[in-house]
Computed example of a mutant assay.
Amino acid sequence: MQDARTAPAPRPRPRWWTELPLLALVYGAYSAGRLVARGDVSTAVDHGLSILRLEKTLHINFEHPLNRLFTAHPSIGIPSDFAYASLHYLVTPVVLVWLFRRRQEIYRRARAWLMTSTMLGLIGFTLLPTCPPRLLEARHGFVDTMAQYSSYGWWGNEASAPRGMGGMTNQYAAMPSLHVGWAIWCGILLWRHGRNPYVRAAGVAYPVITVLVVMGTANHYFLDAVAGAAVMGVGALLARPLMRFADRVAERFSVRFPRLAPKAESPDTRKESPVSGAESPIVSAGCETSAGERIPGQRTTSADAVDAAPGGTPRAGSGAPSGAGTAGDDTPAAAR
C-alpha cells in the first residue's frame, strides 16, 4: 500500500474562469501567428502548384471532380460553403465544453492535444505557405465556390471571413488543413467517449464531411487534409509529455509561491453524507448521545447496565453474564 506521505498530490480540477482565458490566449496567439506567417505570394503559389502536380502524378487529385460537382449544383455548394465558414468555429468549442462538463477525466489531455496540434499547424503555415486551389489561375480548373455563392452568406471573396475583414486572415495558410485536423479531433473524442449512438455516428460523419467540403470548395488540396491528420497524430503523441512538463512547472511554482498555487482536494479524505451530501472526514461528525443512551449494537458491562437500569437493578437482556464485568476488571470482553 502506498504511503499517503509519498503519494502524488491530486491535480486541482480545472475551473472555467481559468480555462476560458487560457483558450482565448492560445487562439489569439494562433490567429496572430497566421497573420505574421504570411509569406511571399509567388512562393505560396509555387508550393500549391507543386502539391497539385504531385497529386496528379499519384492520381489523387480528388479536389477537381468535387469542385466541379459543388460548382454545378448550388444545392450542394451553398450548404458546403456555410459548413466551411461556420462549423470549424462552432463544433470544436462545443466539444471542448462537453468534455469539460461531462468528461473531466480526459478533458485536460484532450485540451493539450488540441493546443499542441494547433501550434504545430502554425509552424507548417510558417515554413510552407501554400496557395489554395481557389486562388490558382483559372486554367488549373478550379472555381472559388465561396466567391460564386457569396451573395447567400456573410463572406466575401476572401476565404470565409466576413465581408470587409479579409485582411485579417491569411489566405495562403492551406498546408496543413486544420479544418480537417480539428474535425478529426472532434470525431475521435465523440466516437470514443460519446454514449449516445447518434453522437458516435456524428463523430464518424463530421471528419468525413469536412474533408469533402474543404476539397469541394477549393480551399484545400487532398494532401492538405492528409497533413492535417498527420499534425493531429503528432500532437496526440506529444500531449502527454507536455502535460508532464506542465505539471513539473506548476509544482515548482506552487513551492515557490504557495499562496498563489491552487489547492487540490483529495477524494480519499472525504466522506459524503447520504442524506445531505455534506462532506465530513469523520463518520459520526455532528452526532451526540445523551447520558445513559446507548448506540444500538454497542457492548456494555454489567456495571453500565446496573447504572442504566432504574434502581440499580441489572436490566434484562443486557448481555452481561453473571459475575462478569465487576469493578476493577479491565480484561477485554473477548479475552473473558
Score class of each variant (00 low, 15 high):
Ser302Leu: 12
Pro332Gly: 09
Gly77Thr: 07
Ala225Cys: 15
Glu288Thr: 10
Gly311Phe: 06
Val306Cys: 13
Arg5Pro: 00
Asp144Arg: 05
Thr43Gly: 00
Ala333Trp: 04
Gly328Asn: 06
Cys131Gln: 03
Phe62Ala: 11
Arg240Pro: 05
Gly141Gln: 05
Ala4Phe: 07
Ile106Asp: 14
Gly312Trp: 08
Ala72His: 10
Val208Glu: 03
Pro207Met: 01
Val94Thr: 15
Gly181Ala: 10
Lys271Trp: 13
Val306Ser: 12
Gly164Val: 05
Trp98Asp: 03
Asp224Lys: 02
Arg53Met: 08
Leu120Met: 11
Leu136Ser: 00
Phe70Tyr: 15
Phe82Ala: 09
Arg252Asp: 15
Ala285Trp: 07
Ala305Phe: 00
Leu212Gln: 01
Lys56Arg: 15
Met1Trp: 03
Ser177Met: 04
Phe62Met: 08
Leu223Phe: 12
Thr326His: 06
Ile184Asn: 04
Leu189Gly: 10
Val97Pro: 05
Met1Tyr: 03
Val275Asp: 04
Trp182His: 10
Gln2Leu: 14
Gly77Ser: 11
Val26Ile: 11
Phe245Pro: 02
Ser266Val: 05
Asp3Gly: 07
Leu190Asp: 08
Ala72Met: 00
Cys131Met: 13
Phe82Trp: 15
Ser75His: 02
Gly277Thr: 03
Glu293Gly: 01
Tyr107Arg: 15
Pro332Phe: 05
Pro10Tyr: 07
Met243Phe: 03
Ser80Ile: 13
Gly181Met: 03
Gly167His: 10
Arg108Ala: 13
Phe82Lys: 04
Thr71Asn: 13
Asn196Glu: 12
Asn61Val: 01
Val226Glu: 05
Leu189Thr: 08
Asn157Ile: 02
Arg139Asp: 10
Trp155Val: 07
Leu237Gln: 15
Ala229Tyr: 09
Ala29Trp: 02
Ala229Gly: 05
Val211Trp: 13
Ile51Met: 11
His73Asp: 08
Ile60Met: 10
Ile184Glu: 01
Ala174Thr: 01
Val36Arg: 06
Pro267Met: 09
Tyr198Ile: 03
His193Tyr: 13
Pro65Phe: 00
Ala44Trp: 15
Ala236Phe: 13
Trp113Ala: 11
Thr57Ser: 15
Ser290Arg: 12
Phe125Asn: 03
Ala183Pro: 04
Arg294Phe: 08
Ala309Ser: 13
Ala85Asp: 06
Pro12Gln: 12
Asp81Asn: 15
Glu279Gly: 03
Ser280Trp: 01
Ile60Arg: 02
Leu238Gly: 09
Glu137Trp: 14
Leu25Asn: 11
Thr313Glu: 14
Ala161Gln: 06
Ala174Glu: 02
Ile106Arg: 13
Arg244Thr: 06
Leu122Ile: 04
Ala239Phe: 12
Ile209Trp: 02
Asn157Pro: 01
Glu55Arg: 00
Gln104Trp: 00
Arg111Gly: 06
Arg270Lys: 09
His47Asn: 15
Gly311Met: 05
Thr217Val: 15
Ser150Gly: 09
Ala32Phe: 07
Leu128Gln: 05
Tyr89Ala: 12
Thr210Cys: 13
Arg11Met: 07
Thr43His: 05
Glu55Ala: 02
Thr210His: 02
Pro21Gly: 13
Ala83Gln: 04
Ala285Ser: 14
Gly124Ile: 03
Pro8Val: 07
Leu120Gly: 02
Ala4Cys: 00
